[in-house]
Design a protein around this nucleic acid. Sequence first.
RNA 1: GUGAGUGUAGCUCAAGGGCAGAGCACUGGACUGUGGCUCCAGGGGUUGGGGGUUCGAAACCCCUCACUCACCCCA
Length: 426
Amino acid sequence: MALSIRAPRGIKDVLPPDATRFESILKDAEDILALGGFRKILLPLFESTALFARSIGGATDIVEKEMYTFLDKGGDQFSLRPEGTASLLRAAIEHHLVDPSRLVRLYYSGPMFRHERPQAGRLRQFYQTGAEILGPLSPMDDVDLIALIHRMAVSFRIPGSSLLLNNMGCPVCRPAYRERLVDYLNAHAEELCETCRKRTVQNPLRVLDCKVPSCQGVLEAAPRIADSLCPKSREHFRRVREGLDGLGIPYVLSHRLVRGLDYYTETTFEFVSDALGAQSTWAAGGRYDGLAGELGGPDVPGIGFAAGVERLWLLREKAGTLPDPESHPVRITIFAMDPAGQIPALALVGRLRQEGIPAAGHFSAGKIKGAFRQAERDGALFLGILGEDEIRSKTVQVKNLETGDQTPWPLDDIKALAEMIRKTGA
RNA sequence: GUGAGUGUAGCUCAAGGGCAGAGCACUGGACUGUGGCUCCAGGGGUUGGGGGUUCGAAACCCCUCACUCACCCCA
């Protein structure tokens, strides 16, 4: 209460034992990606603002109002990354990992930053783990990637999960559809909400995403992208559905599924769960065939997705599949009963650690009761006592906190003590 | 950015105009260098902050901040 500086809004500290549990959740997801042949890439937390503006799209909410943007001392403009795909593509292109003749599969994990109003499952700093495939893609690669996420849903027993699927067309058919849609929306402008009218001009596909009840009638009756697909996109969509059917992965066709990032083409998908509250998407992604070329790389197709790690946590919590927290590692707490024992206590914990025994010290010479409490708090199996008598006889009294057994151990044979502790702990 | 709900001890929560409390946690003692159980005692609070109404405000009113949820947006 007296603390005047607190964590920024929408930013969460993850305390023990949740911190190691969080890492387990992240690792479980990454393991599935690694199993799918993806290799890990470490990416910077901030990039030139222009990278995000160009890839995500200047008229998107993310770029327009949610980025943490700053000028560095050289006067260059950077932004904390609001997502991972742009960074990954930039890095892959910059280091010539993209090759038109073969596939490259990469995954990343880490915090993303968006200045949004915090809510259940929505933070300003949040973790995503995501994967991308770049190169000469088949529609079957779309299916393969989706299957990997489906694997997560099964493996983590994500409750109430379903897959929404759409195809947003390609550079050939989307502009024509876009035009048809704009004509339709303009014809019905007076029936639409204000944001919809604004979006008709700025980003017409996003209008389809509107949830205002009074807009629903008009939007349901709007021209559907599926009816405007060119033969190639139509075939792509058909083969993706065929692949999913072949694997027995259920999905719901969602012709109004329009993602909030401009780079998507063809296949788009969202894994949602009814167990999450308002922020129901736990993983989402799609094809982005023009992006690599747009960013100055080889003009190869790409597909990717990202999953929200905090949302995975919430879902696994509901499902009862949260990993166990790592147990507190301390095996023995060493108590220096008086100042003369402090140096020997320090030396003792040091030697125990060398033997691989997690050891903690209680050096603040005082009542032995306090040492027992500290040992309990440490989760220790043993308490080692170094008082006057022990220093004189060059021993340490080691008490098993569970059984109460206590024996003196010579300070010059730590290996034997370590061995005993190791055996008891196992 | 908009709306609603909630802010009381470290934590979980009482008190709804009249002395700010309980449980857990913490500290000490009973019990001197041997803990946990039990019993006893103790420390802890500008009731989120500011202003107003009132003889008197944790409570009622206004402003503000924070948290939570929802809109929006998205993973």
